[in-house]
Amino acid sequence: MSDDSQAVSVTINGHLYSGTCEPRLTLADFIRHECGLTGTHLGCEHGVCGACTIIVDGRSTRACLMLAVQADGSEITTVEGLANGAELNPLQEAFWNNHGLQCGFCTPGMLMCATEFLEGNPEPTADEVRECISGNLCRCTGYASIVASVLSAAEELRR
């Protein structure tokens, strides 16, 4: 650790994490290594694949494109914050019902992206869902089942 280390305190899924880190440490690595929350995945580390998408202060964000030090004082939600204990939330449940995942590597990013999307658009069309997830690459599903999952979650959440 160099002399340039910075203090960082962030609240992730309701827990406060404090530590010091080099300025260059990405928020994604901070979450994975310092906080042990490995559900946030690294698929490209240049902001294209979306696997590391998390919610920072209410907005979906690429964790590989933020430095940990920039998140000081922020409220963050990661995929680990979605389920209630051992109970999946309706969006997760919809992915399960609709085979919205295969290898599961892109899934945390998809879920976080869709979480933000459904808050702003509770009655989306299939085309809107496609646009919503177009910044998240999936190599397994061909996307159709993910679109179906998000639409089904929207319906469930409207009930």
Partner: peptide, 9 residues
């Protein structure tokens, strides 16, 4: 310009 997540930040 990119995707919503890019434009958020």
């Amino acid at each position: 310009v990119g995707h919503v997540t890019n434009r958020n930040r």
